[in-house]
């Protein structure tokens, strides 16, 4: 069973649809027991970090997530919440990745949010086994995770090179939206669905 964590607002239907196109049914849930029992867990994120973290804590899901041992994928804000801290609302995160999420500096000529299709490179780890270097993925975000030892893919915007994906043990995350990234995104999700 694939659990898709639902903890508030956001377009989670697209994640379920993408799974279905790959022949899998996801189960939308915020129940700790269901999430613990799942073979894989997807943690989508749309919205604002501090209220999203508050919604997670309210449901006791912060501790559940950190204790999981099976393949886990955070998407966009989901990946950012897996880090130690976010400048968005000065939010303490789950601390799975010991990184600090930063805001793109404004007033440098680049538009914020970083929105649209951008190339991903230096691909490593399990999510990108079938993806070519410099493939395009769809991003929408105003905050970014700097490069780290856990960076599994890079992207650059506004002269800043940042983590397009992270991986540490069973925990994976993408800053881009695989469910909105066409055939490239499908390959990333398919690799996640095969990850052991």
């Amino acid at each position: 069973m694939i659990a898709v964590i639902q903890y508030g607002a956001g377009n989670v239907r697209s994640v379920l649809s993408a799974l279905r196109r790959l022949g899998h049914e996801g189960v939308l849930t915020d129940a700790p027991d269901t999430i613990r029992k799942a073979e894989r867990v997807i943690f989508p994120g749309v919205g604002e970090a501090s209220s999203a973290m508050a919604a997670l804590r309210e449901r006791g899901l912060d501790e559940v997530i950190s204790s999981l041992e099976r393949p886990f994928l955070g998407i966009c804000l989901g990946m950012q919440m897996m880090c130690s801290f976010s400048e968005e609302g000065d939010t303490e995160g789950l601390g799975i990745f010991p990184e600090r999420v930063m805001r793109f500096p404004s007033g440098r000529g680049c538009k914020i949010p970083h929105m649209g299709w951008n190339g991903i490179s230096a691909l490593g780890g399990r999510l990108f086994a079938d993806v070519d270097e410099e493939s395009y993925a769809y991003f929408v975000h105003s905050y970014y995770v700097p490069l780290s030892p856990f960076t599994a893919a890079r992207c650059s915007y506004d002269g800043i090179c940042f983590s397009a994906a992270l991986e540490r043990g069973n925990f994976m995350g993408t800053q881009f939206h695989p469910e909105k990234s066409g055939s490239v995104g499908e390959k990333v999700l398919a690799s996640f669905l095969e990850a052991i």
Partner: peptide, 11 residues
């Protein structure tokens, strides 16, 4: 919108 979301994988 539901049908489109089920079918396509771009925003």
């Amino acid at each position: 919108v539901q049908d489109v979301a089920d079918r396509i994988s771009i925003p």
